[in-house]
Design a protein around this nucleic acid. Sequence first.
DNA 1: CCGAATTATTGGACGCGGTGTAATAACTAC
DNA 2: GTAGTTATTACACCGCGTCCAATAATTCGG
Lengths: 202, 202
Amino acid sequence: MNHSPQVGRPRRSSQRILEESAAELFLEQTYARTTVDQIAQRAGVSRNTFFNYFGSKSDVLWVDIDETLERLSLELAAASPSVPVMDAVRDAVTRVAAAHPDDRVPWALTHVDLMGTREELEASGLRRLMKQSDVLRDFIGQRVRSADSSLSRAAAFATLAAAAAAAGAWVSAGVGRRALAEYVADAVGPVCAGFAAVIEPG
Amino acid sequence: MNHSPQVGRPRRSSQRILEESAAELFLEQTYARTTVDQIAQRAGVSRNTFFNYFGSKSDVLWVDIDETLERLSLELAAASPSVPVMDAVRDAVTRVAAAHPDDRVPWALTHVDLMGTREELEASGLRRLMKQSDVLRDFIGQRVRSADSSLSRAAAFATLAAAAAAAGAWVSAGVGRRALAEYVADAVGPVCAGFAAVIEPG
DNA sequence: CCGAATTATTGGACGCGGTGTAATAACTAC
DNA sequence: GTAGTTATTACACCGCGTCCAATAATTCGG
């Protein structure tokens, strides 16, 4: 699991360095107006090296989010089979949110206003979220004997969307905010309750 | 409202022509492998003319969707103030879906499999939907005296995401499918019910 | 019939993101 | 020192999207 090689040419840069260089430039020039060249140049590496550490320019904005979201499948797998499916979903999503370090507010969200086109930001953010939709849909569908797979899909989509909205609210709340998990729980709760009433009409 | 000019050079092309040329090429080569140049060339116009009719390459995929989605704000405005908020939301969204012509299955969704990266497609489609989130959020927030605006946002996001999932299911159902509005109602219903229980605990 | 105004189309150039490839640098192990 | 491994680099390329200036095709007013 440890991917730190003792052999071969040592790394000159790192995700952190590039991230910081990018953040500076974004603040100075906004996201839209800074090029990958500039980021790489400030970090002291070539443009191609940037793409060695990030798959795309927008990836810089979401490093923290990605790390946190990877926990979702683990949390789902750890769910007890005895608890109702939508309760398990709500708890898993909430726990993922709780695992996110409170001090690490994703850069992208804190400076939404500074980023020229907000659409591009939303698009890349949604894409991040949708990556998890398959995992969530499979989990729900697995536990539901309903032949109507569209319901699982809808539940997964709606749950993640609510979580995204909660994250947005959390950031907007500013310094005096409560914990992220609370916002997420408040937003995801109604969605899961609504679908639970349909999926498990017990 | 009619912007058809009697003066000036007449149009050589149209959105329909370009759309059809694009559809042919997408089927032959997939979306990812066809360039804007090719679309324009097949339509008998120059590349720049393409951008006269569409803002971007992906816009071609969503013309029908965009037309339908524009109805949302109208439906919301027509809602009676006496009916509970989330009921009004559910009905409005369902009516928008009902207004979509059943024969006009959005090209993008019918051929999801043929389009290289499905992620990009899903994201761009969801983005279209989320353009309406402001309208929906404002509508909900207006009728709710709750100071917690984050709930309105979550409700709007979740509702639209459920609608998107329903649209996907509708397309996947193939030729023997029921009406789009039914899928949407099934998916949006639980979401609205869940939030109604929180927003209007009456 | 002629010019002015209007609108669509066109070509050309540019910037930027992203990909691919082949060369090379920096290091470890033997 | 040589071989193997990995990171970095330069270079070329493609495609999307934008901008701009030129031009074609039409209507309108004289």
